[in-house]
Simulated scan of single mutants.
Amino acid sequence: MEALACESGVYYEFNKNNAYTKKVASGTTIKIETYDCYKNQIQSEEISMDAINWHEINPATGPIYVEGALPGDILKVQIEKIEIGSQGVMMVGPGLGVMGHRIEKRVAKILPIREEKIIFNGIQIPLNKMIGVIGVAPAGEGVSCETPGAHGGNMDNKMITEGATLYFPIFTEGALFSLGDLHAAMGDGEVGVSGIEVPGAATVTIEVIKGPTIQHPMLENAEVFTQIASAQTLDEATKIAIEEMIDRIVEKSTLSLEEVTMLMSAVGQIEICQIVDPLMTVRFVVPKWLLEELGIELI
């Protein structure tokens, strides 16, 4: 199995001009190590906030050049395994997240992880290991690793976990895939701007799909297929996700636009991924039993 250590290359912007740190064939399984979103700078609750380099936030490990990947293709990324460190960190502060207008100082909290539980003031929180930042290089200007978009990026979608498969539109030769910002747990919304941030490693299988195209990332697991979208507002992101899913089902099935819209109103679910990044991210979730009933595959 291939491997990529975080020391091999990290960056803070998804950009088609980034020099790749590794080249792999389509179908490769690779273990990618990551720093936490603070680049492992916070090891104590007593750390001075002035001691942190705030330019080194949300580092992504990579990028990885995938042979045969061309603009218009799809990059399929199967998440095989997520491994995390023995402690996580959270932080809140003025201007951060939903409550930032009422919080007066930055506060960090170190959280031990023991026996598949995160310890928070004696409260045992179940693990929900997931990847916050994951994606490919965008078509135009570079995009900060703090920002989500059509390329993926900082989607902070708790469904990006073991057993999930992501699909990304490819905008540049080689795709230039990377990931980072692992969480031991994170709630939908990530309302305080920080999940339980951890260093670790994600093992993924990367494959180029020729033929079909998509505009924004999609995700599937054993139960559902989802359309992910990011925009300036939740309203705008929601409309993009719903419309792209409906259009895709209309294209793949024999149903009319009106009929698919009815079905989506009956069984589709719009869910929030995060509301604290420069763009808001949602997912529109469709149960796989419906796709089986229709006899279609979305990719």
Score class of each variant (00 low, 15 high):
L111G: 09
P212W: 10
F284N: 03
T29F: 01
K117R: 15
N40S: 09
K16T: 08
V204M: 11
V193M: 02
F284E: 00
E13T: 09
C6T: 07
Y35N: 02
T28W: 00
F284C: 08
P287N: 11
E45S: 09
L4P: 09
P169M: 07
I79D: 07
A60R: 06
F168C: 07
W289G: 08
R102I: 12
R106E: 02
L291F: 12
V98R: 05
E236N: 05
V136H: 06
M245T: 11
L291C: 00
A202L: 05
I249F: 08
E190Q: 06
Q78R: 13
I134C: 08
G9Y: 12
R106N: 05
I206L: 15
T161V: 12
I118E: 02
E80Y: 08
S253F: 08
I47G: 05
I209C: 04
Q43T: 15
T147F: 06
K81M: 04
V260S: 10
A60D: 09
I79E: 02
E190L: 07
L176Y: 06
V133L: 12
G268H: 06
T213F: 06
E190F: 02
P63Y: 02
K109S: 14
V193K: 02
L279E: 01
F14Q: 01
E297S: 14
C37F: 05
Q124V: 05
I123Q: 14
L179K: 07
E13G: 00
V107K: 13
N121E: 15
I84H: 04
G88P: 03
